[in-house]
Write a protein that binds this DNA or RNA. Structure first.
Lengths: 153, 153
DNA sequence: AGTGCCTTGATATTCTATAACAATCAGGGC
DNA sequence: GCCCTGATTGTTATAGAATATCAAGGCACT
């Protein structure tokens, strides 16, 4: 499952700290709930659904309601800490939260891992394509399905 | 609403005839239901949801059930007559059904019109981007949000 | 303490999609 | 024609994803 062995706990910690810092700069509120949801999104390296987060968030006793999760996710997406994968109705942690952007992804159809591409050049090509067709560019989603290097062996 | 005045009835007719012909070639069955659903998808130039199709399909008396619509849509997508717009949970008729492909779209955030881009070069860039990141390429969705020429006046 | 605003809780509902099984229809071999 | 087979459609029920609405709680500022 794990492609590259890496210290995932540290990986999560980094994401949480980065988010904390950015929120302080922006004076937005990184509340315990929002922090926890971000942690849960990062807890899987694969995309996670809102209801999976919901289940993880609900410990035996009390079950949280969907809006609790969706509102937290909305905040995290708004701040750029999380991206939504449209083709999977799922969410992933952003690999570069410092710069707000919309993600372009590759999705492995074998192992479900998702890789975010932060390639300026690709973004520019897409923007130009839109403009050459008469559209102003606001944002875009790009989700490429394929098989990752590891799964091809 | 209409960007360019055009004979939309003829536009629908063309799509239906093309589909008919392609199904004959492929020896797949373009049944009355499938034909009707394709017609309904084309009846709006904007993307249409499965449940909108369902409502249109249900005349007063008998209401069809969701699977009826979804199965027809699945067939039409499989044959390449219809594309699904992930970011809108909606469907649009394909502008080039003769060649199977996955669509790349621009979506106007003002008027909701959708334009399909059939640009080989863009497709190639995306494919190359995936490959340079170690992924084999299967297919991709690209949905660009922006404002179309007409809406910008 | 009182006000206002943001966040979270709670309940209900809407929208989107599929599972499972029954009934019907079309075509091929006899 | 008649039966067999497989694809298509009908039907019922349910799963999965997301939002509307209103109430309650927390925080900051006066």
């Amino acid at each position: 499952m794990l492609k590259h062995k890496h210290d995932h706990d540290a990986c999560i910690e980094n994401a949480l700290e980065a988010a904390q810092k950015i929120c302080e700069e922006r004076e937005t509120r990184f509340t315990p709930l929002r922090r926890r949801v971000l942690e849960l999104v990062w807890s899987k390296h694969e995309p996670i659904t809102a209801y999976e987060v919901l289940d993880l968030l609900s410990d035996g006793k009390k079950r949280v309601a969907p809006p609790t999760v969706y509102r937290a996710l909305d905040f995290l997406i708004e701040e750029g800490f999380v991206h939504r994968i449209e083709s999977l109705n799922s969410f992933v942690g952003c690999s570069d939260p410092a710069h707000k952007h919309q993600g372009h992804f590759m999705i492995c159809t074998k192992c479900s891992n998702v890789t975010e591409m932060n390639e300026r050049s690709l973004h520019d090509v897409i923007k130009k394509a839109a403009e050459s067709n008469g559209y102003s560019y606001e944002n875009s989603i790009l989700e490429i399905a394929g098989i990752c290097e590891n799964c091809r062996n």
